[in-house]
Design a protein around this nucleic acid. Structure first.
Lengths: 124, 124, 124, 124
DNA sequence: GTGGTCTAGACCACT
DNA sequence: GTGGTCTAGACCACA
């Protein structure tokens, strides 16, 4: 079970994103323990510190909490928090950027929707 | 006259993007000379090497060309080339990512269009 | 009945402090038995070893004593001992630190007294 | 030039506190560059990562900023920010705790002021 | 020159 | 068992 790491981004950020995705997709329930630092570091052949760094980011974002001597746990409400955070960023930052790009590239709204349709068909 | 550099991206890439935008928006016509490395580095308090690096990327992408002793110039067809390049990247990389994100965030097509409308009004 | 544990300090120290406070406030009289390790560990969902560790600290400080087969008891004179210990620490360690901090933050003696007054009113 | 590290606290936190104190005392002016990670790590025989960790905390608190390739710099307004932060914490957290302790230890306001006077004399 | 990242290996405190 | 911290040493991107 080997991960394909994307070399353009630090591993600890990719790890954090993976956990966030697991929470969003429900593979990691609220209140559930994150896989231990040691487990993850062994499984993916990573330095424990690298894993710790990813987990610490989750704690900083109040998505996970430490219980001393027991491990890290997904906090209650983490999923909603994530959804809201991402929507926020998307609507206030990414979407405006998208629109500017559409204008600059002279892509009409119709082309955009067509492309979305096509994508939807491809991915079922 | 200070630029707000985005610390999350190397300055030389931000510089390149600025020049590309100027070309796309017509502020820098084809055949026109780029501002000299020395000018830019003085104006924005940058290391000349940083500016050179940005310009070299434009040369590598065949968007600009060096004329010995005269400076750098926007090549003919640069604007179209840029448009095509960006459309390509947009349609093959960004759009699929956008769709995945929309799904994950439960943002419907209607919400997307509403947001686009709103943006359009804001930007006139 | 869940305690809010402060993650910045080991649980066994927090437990010890709680017991010490109970002694100081008279909620745990001298000669009285401490709640059993088993009781506490069940009530607060703690590892019994954690509770034992806290109790052992009290024994080490001669504030409690073990009676084989009967449990742990608050020793005679525990309250006075605690008072004296804490006064000692307060006057020799905390107070000097307080003064240094007041100076650094430019908080005058008047502001300090005002704040104390306000606190007193709040807490009745 | 060797620092006496306090073993009860991680070095990177002690380092952060040192820098904060330097800012508060004006030894490190706003806009000035922090001593480089390498310099500090060499001077105090520390791992560069340990120093980085301390500096990152300052960035997270918006007391310092990174300039890519140039180093870390004290941000404008850092000193005021620090003062305000510390006052806030002091007045809302430490002072109430102080009062509770005074009550518990039966230390009167007069004793407190006497002690403060004495301290002041000692430290000039 | 600057900071960022990672590995390997060790020791610690806590539950 | 858990996470936290540190060292030593290496490589990278950036200015």
């Amino acid at each position: 079970m080997q991960i394909q790491w994307d070399d353009s981004q630090p591993i600890y950020l990719q790890l954090r994103d993976r956990v966030q995705n697991m929470i969003l997709e429900g593979n990691l329930a609220e209140g559930e323990a994150l896989p231990s630092v040691r487990t993850v570091s062994a499984e993916y052949q990573l330095n424990p510190i690298t894993v710790s760094k990813a987990y610490q980011l989750l704690v900083d974002d109040q998505l996970a909490e430490k219980k001393r001597g027991l491990g890290m746990f997904v906090v209650d409400g983490a999923k909603d928090k994530l959804l809201q955070q991402e929507r926020e960023v998307f609507l206030t930052t990414e979407l405006p950027a998208l629109l500017r790009k559409l204008k600059r590239l002279n892509i009409t709204r119709e082309e955009l929707l067509d492309a979305l349709d096509k994508e939807e068909l491809d991915n079922g």
